[in-house]
Design a protein around this nucleic acid. Structure first.
Lengths: 139, 139
DNA sequence: TTATTAGTCTATCTTTTTTATAGGATTTAT
DNA sequence: ATAAATCCTATAAAAAAGATAGACTAATAA
């Protein structure tokens, strides 16, 4: 399951996308709108900023905003950033690969094969669906 | 990612499947063979037994054994038993459904829609692939 | 230039989950 | 009887997730 962190990130990004025309949006506004602890959300938005997904402005009139159009922000990117691997096993992760301990030979490991397929089928969706696809109203 | 518990369960089940002809197999044998803490494995095998996947026999000559042929044990069943939901969000889980808190209307929720697709694509594989598919040698 | 506003950064705390261990109870074969 | 094995429950230890705190920096406006 996705962590709260990732779920909150999606909600926040949706709010930012739906209010792109209004300039920088306050953390506090998003927190209130989406029922998220403001301090927790602060950390999440910072991470998104440091990853180059959001921009920010300090001081009065400041806040957060999307750096790219929603249709260019793939869901997979957000999940990987905040939750880590999408794959079900470390040995089939593309971005967070780790060797299996209890596995003699990955090339012949049946689990490895099946889980690679699961990963691919998930990525096919998550790499192609974007923020735009999860908005309620169109923008 | 799948928990160690589930990963160990797969390894143990594979060992049991590959040694079906040898009668009940000792926990200690599996633990040694697969490098799993024996006490931890004990709990896992017990859960598998209580779920009707394994049978057991106590006392001398005892141990664990599969109750059904490997091809009848779907990977999804093992994952759900030991790890819980396969879905990425509670609101799209078939077996562990929970309503989203921060969600106004599931029917129009874009995330819900995408994550349902991810779930379906994963289940299509995990419900159909079985223990037989992850064995190294044929049996 | 000062006060205010709002994000930045890092540390810490709390809670939950995961992983692992302990040890007595029970069953079975010999 | 006794030895061998699983059964069962409790608990401990470690890691991860979730949440909070507070001092710091930058931007704006008066």
């Amino acid at each position: 399951m996705l962590s709260k962190k990732t779920q909150y990130a999606f909600h926040a990004l949706v709010h930012l996308a739906e209010n792109m025309d209004k300039g920088p949006i306050l953390i506090s506004e998003i927190a209130q709108e989406k029922n998220i602890s403001i301090k927790f959300l602060e950390n999440i938005l910072l991470e998104l900023k440091n990853a180059g997904i959001l921009g920010s402005k300090k001081g009065k009139g400041g806040g957060y905003y999307l750096l790219r159009p929603p249709k260019e922000i793939a869901l997979a990117k957000i999940i990987r950033l905040l939750d880590g691997p999408i794959a079900l096993l470390p040995c089939v992760s593309l971005n967070y690969y780790e060797r299996c301990e209890n596995c003699r030979d990955e090339a012949v490991c049946g689990l490895n094969e099946v889980m690679s397929k699961v990963r691919d089928s998930a990525l096919k969706i998550l790499e192609n669906k974007t923020l735009k696809d999860i908005l309620t109203r169109n923008s």
